[in-house]
């Protein structure tokens, strides 16, 4: 079980949190103009990296607020948590694999 530092409440057990998938995916504002392929990419396709992953978590049994986390999907190591709108935690020496199609926008 991971101890997770909620950027609003401090460190709590992982069982208090629920997972919200990949972070920094911005909903396209011009959705009416998108092709089916572009819309499908936005809705269904994910980077799913083996290594550093930026992801959203929700403090379900706490403050019930969302935040973002930089976590390694192999070791489980948490490199940092930050509030939405704050710059993502930079992890320069994290093991990286090639990520196709960039790693999403900012959000």
């Amino acid at each position: 079980m991971l101890p997770i530092r909620c950027p609003w409440c401090g460190e709590r057990e992982q069982t208090e949190f629920s997972y919200g998938g990949e972070a920094h995916i911005v909903r396209p504002t011009d959705s009416a103009d998108l092709t089916d392929a572009e819309w499908g990419d936005y809705v269904f396709f994910r980077t799913n990296p083996r290594g550093l992953h930026y992801e959203r978590w929700f403090h379900a049994f706490g403050c019930r607020r969302w935040f973002n986390m930089a976590r390694d999907t192999v070791s489980g190591a948490i490199h940092g948590t930050y509030r939405p709108g704050e710059p993502r935690t930079d992890v320069p020496d994290a093991p990286r694999v090639p990520v196709a199609g960039g790693d999403g926008g900012e959000g």
């Binding site: 998938g21 499908g40 396709f45 994910r46 980077t47 799913n48 083996r50 694999v97 090639p98 196709a100």
Partner: peptide
């Protein structure tokens, strides 16, 4: 489970999470 990593090597993404 490693399909995403292989797809990334080939330059495309998958609608998959591991």
């Amino acid at each position: 489970g490693n399909s995403g990593a292989l797809a990334a090597m080939a330059g495309f993404r998958l609608p998959i999470e591991t």
